[in-house]
Design a protein around this nucleic acid. Sequence first.
DNA 1: CGAATAGTGTCTGTAAGACACTATTCC
DNA 2: GGAATAGTGTCTTACAGACACTATTCG
Lengths: 264, 264
Amino acid sequence: MAIHRNKHGEDLSEEDIDFVKNYEPRDYPPNAVTADVILLTIRSGRLAVLLVERASPPQGGSWALPGGHLNPEESIHETALRELAEKTGFAAEPAHLEQLQTYSTPGRDARDTKMRVTSVAYLAFMPDPGTPKAGSDARSARFWAVDDLPEFNSQLTWEEGPVLAFDHAAMLRDGLERAASKLEYTTLATAFVDEQFTISDLRRVYEAVWRSIIDAPNFSRKVKATSGFIEPTGVKRATGRAPAGLFVKGEADIISPPFFRPAD
Amino acid sequence: MAIHRNKHGEDLSEEDIDFVKNYEPRDYPPNAVTADVILLTIRSGRLAVLLVERASPPQGGSWALPGGHLNPEESIHETALRELAEKTGFAAEPAHLEQLQTYSTPGRDARDTKMRVTSVAYLAFMPDPGTPKAGSDARSARFWAVDDLPEFNSQLTWEEGPVLAFDHAAMLRDGLERAASKLEYTTLATAFVDEQFTISDLRRVYEAVWRSIIDAPNFSRKVKATSGFIEPTGVKRATGRAPAGLFVKGEADIISPPFFRPAD
DNA sequence: CGAATAGTGTCTGTAAGACACTATTCC
DNA sequence: GGAATAGTGTCTTACAGACACTATTCG
């Protein structure tokens, strides 16, 4: 039996070439595939997420994660990057972008009665990039501290902050959990800080994402003892009170043993 | 500003109702959304995956993960369950089913030139269900030990076992890594064994998924010390040599502290 | 008996977390 | 000096892993 391979259109069997030639996509139920991006950063020590105020339907006027349709010829990963650039005007790509999960519950989008809308959520980290410019299809765009969102802070009422459109609150919830867990076993905390950073900067990332207080002495020792996590530059920064050593990210992506979150 | 919500078609604004009424899905590029399932089990102490031999194009004749198209009205999770039942004839649902990742690289499917095919991969665990019956669209269906697949065992040549269609080898690779990591911090090892099991049964799951040998005395003590992992039934099973206590799964889903894989 | 499996006891090294203490800078 | 921040030292507890040892059954 012949081995059939299909990488980027090469090595198609004759049957497959025929099959594709006669294939009529319009014979099948319509689908839309979109990417939505949860872009997280740290602002004044608080974890913040980028939201866009939608200009047009569905759910015009409400706040949502930036996102949009998969174009022919591009991968969803590229969709996520493109939509992020279009909706926010950021020139720089995020320091980290990973796929989170796909959401497809019927009814999650008003169009579902005519065409199913399947959304692939992405999770992105970057150092505070300043104020975004509202782009195409957006009335406005800004970072919101996660605990200024009523759906993420039981102290707030629904009138005191934006309520998320579609199932974006569920996406954000899943994204926050993924982010917290990734800090345990990867060096991704460095994706939230500038190229050069102090150990305290790094600790504040953990504190913001984990929503907990970390013992500074123990943290400092642990980070320096984890091989490949950070590299000293030799330079010291005298910004605050005591001068602090400046570091850059090391070569490691995985930290072992992991840094555990406090049990709560 | 009004708060817009959209849960299962309720609470639509007038703009959204108008928008959907005038929406024409055929104006947009066509997409297909499919679910593919990585069903893992333990057979004679080895980790095995369910594969089907495809009967029709694309890639008819090659081995692939069971899967198929998202139907209107169903969630992608339901697609995964339905395709698994249709392609294998299993009456029982898997003990565990979770979404893994979504694959959308252009060119991953021969049809991509006419219609993009986005696949949501699912990961499923269950105790050995016996021999599957090849269902719709499948020439045959069977479990393959993962290390009888040439792409997962460098000792084998491509002629000595099935080579996976599409990007299913990448999916399986990601699924195996997810499975190994899930055993670290969840009680999902119990999804691979029968309702009643011995501690050795459970240890063999860890050994098969982690591809490593675990010290039986330490494992036994650790499992029993982890609250909520397993509950004793009081009964003993005298199948092999020494009689072993029988246990059932406890209420916990998360194990803390985690069980770590050996560093390799 | 000997082999295979189940399970207990005990020791060692590593690491997490608590916390007292010193050092440096700005006000 | 006093407050804020950076960083060291040291002690306790917990747990992973190594491994010697006992117990039970089958051939």
